[in-house]
Write a protein that binds this DNA or RNA. Sequence first.
RNA 1: GCGCCGGUAGCUCAGCGGAUAGAGCGGCUGCCUUCUAAGCAGCGGGUCGCAGGUUCGAGUCCUGCCCGGCGCACCA
Length: 569
Amino acid sequence: MIQDTLVRLVADAVAAAAPDLGLDASDLPPPEISRPRQKEHGDWSTNVALVLASRAGKPPRAVAEAVAARLAGADVIRDVEVAGPGFINFFLDRSWLDDALREILSEGDRYGRVPPLGQRVQVEFVSANPTGPLHVGTARNAAIGDSLANLLEAAGFDVEREYYFNDAGRQFDLFGESVEARYLQRFGVPAEVPQDGYQGDYVADIATDIAAEVGDSLVQGDPAERRARMIREAVERTVAGIHRTLERFNVRIDTWFSEVTLHQTGAIDDAVRRLRDAGFAYDSEGAIFFASTRFGDDKDRVLIRSNGAPTYFAADCAYVLDKAGRGFDRLVYVWGADHHGSVKRLEAAAQALGVRATVEVVLYQLVSFLRAGQPAKMSRRAGDFISLDELLDEVGSDAARYTLLTRSSDSPLDFDIELVTRQSMDNPVYYVQYAHARVASLLRMALQEGIVPLSPDDVPIGRLVEDGELELVRKLTEFPEVVALAGEILAPHRLTRYAEEVAAAFHRFYSECRVITEDRALTEARLALATAAKTVVATALSMLGVSAPESMERVDGAQEGDRVGRDVV
RNA sequence: GCGCCGGUAGCUCAGCGGAUAGAGCGGCUGCCUUCUAAGCAGCGGGUCGCAGGUUCGAGUCCUGCCCGGCGCACCA
C-alpha cells in the first residue's frame, strides 16, 4: 500500500538528514503518515519534522526542509511541500489511485481484511441468564459483540465467540421453581409461583411444553428429582430459544458455556485453592475473601460465602482460568455499563491467577427503548417486557443492528422503535443499503446491454477524471485503515460511520456521472468503480451483520413528496 | 462520599495529539422526458461544560470544579 511506500521514503530521508540535524540515526521513531483533512495539504502528509524538531534543537520548518530535500524521487510523488508549522505534504500522481482501485477489484471481498496473525482471541458476549427469552436490553450487547468478533477476524485474529450462561444460583433456582409450579398447575396440583419468581407467560409455555413431552410422570415422583429435572428441561428450552433469536439477529455463537459445569467439575474450588496458594485468599467471618485490593480494587471480594456457597465472582475466577487454559491471547468481555464495578475485580483475579492473556472489557452504555418518544416499559420479572424477537418482528434485524452500532459504545443510545422503522435518513441503514442496491441494479442493466465486467488489469481506469469519481476511489482506499483502527480500539461504530461516508461518495458519483453510456470504455471504467464501491459497502455491512440487498423496491405507489419517511413527523 | 461514562451546531451524535472542528435530522433554495429522488447540489447555524496545566500544537492528554447517566452486596 501507498502508506508503506511513503513511510519507507520518509524514514530514509530522515536517516539521511540525521547527521546534519544532529540526530542519532539509530534511534528514530517510525514516521507517521496521515491523510490531511484539507485537500490543499496534499494527498498524504507527515509530521516527522514537528516531532523531531525539539530533539534536533532546530525550528520545525528547518527540519522539514532538510528532510524534504533528501526525499528520493519516486514516480508516484508529483510534488512535495513544506507547509504550516512544519508539515511535509505529498501530492501524488493519480496512478496511486489507479493502483488502489485495481487492488480493490482484484481482492474483491478480501479487500480490507488482513492475513491471519496466528493469534487467538475470544469474544464473550450476550451471556444473558437463560431464565427466559432474550429481551431487548441485550440487543446492543449482541450487536457489539458479534460485530467486534467480525472486525477482529478481519484484523487477522482467530476468533471464538462464546456465550456464558448462568444456570446456577438463586435467580436460576427461582426460575426452576416457577416452571415447576406452572407444570404442577397443569395437572391440577396446587402450587404457587414463588413471590419473587418469574411470572411471565413464557414460563407457563415452557411448563406446557415440558408437560407435553413427559406427561404427568413428574407430578408424583421425588420433589428434589423433579426440581432438578425441571431446571434441566427449562434451561434446554430457553437456551434453544435464545439460539434461535440470535440466529435471526445474524449473531453467531461458537461455544455455549454453562456456569454449572464450573461447579460440577470442581473448577471453582480449584480457582479458590489457587488464589489461596498464591496468598491472595484468606478466611474472615466464616467466608473466604479474595484480596483484590492488592490489585487496586476498592475492597476485598467474597469468594465463598459463610454459608459455604460460592459467589458469582468465584465462578468468574474459575471461568477466566478456564478461558486462559484454552490458549487465547486476548479475552474480550462485552458488558453493560451497569457492570463496570466488576471490571477491577475481574482484572485483579486474572492477574492473581497468573492469566497471561490480556483481559479487555468493552463497556457499553445502556439503551433506552422508546416508542414515538415515549419510554417503552420493560421489566422482565413482571413478564411485561419487549423481547428481542418482538423488536426483530417490528423493525427487522438489519435496521436494529445498524442502529445499535451507530454510536460509540460510551454513548447512551435512544432507540426509538417507531423511528427505526421509518425509511428515511433518521435511519441511515437504508441510505447505505441503497448504495449497494443501486450498483447491483447498474450491473444487471449493463449485463442486459451485453457489458460484462473486465478483469481488473483491463479496466480503462484512466477514463475516470471527474471529482466525484476520484473522491469515491479515495474514500474506498480508506477501508483497510478503518477496519484496522476499529478492530484495534474495539469500536464497531467506526465502521458504521465509514459505511455512510462511502455511500455518500457513491451517491454523489452516481448523480454526477452517468454510468451506462454510449462510450464503451467510459462505461467500463465507471462500472468497475461502482463495483468496487459495491464490494466495500457489502464487506462493511457484513462486518456489521447487516445484509447488502441486490435491490430495494421503491415504496409503493408513492408520488414525489409522499414517499415514506419524507413527510412523517 | 468513591468509581466508570458522557457534556461538541436548534436536536441526535462523529471526531487515531495536528493545519480552517464534521455528519445526519430540522429550516431555507434549487435538481427527476435519461442507469432506483430511500438520491444530489447549495445556504444558514459553534465561547467543543468551566478554570488551570502539559505540548511546537489540545475538542482530543493531566488536575480541579459544575451538570447528567450508571454503579458501589456474603445479588446475578
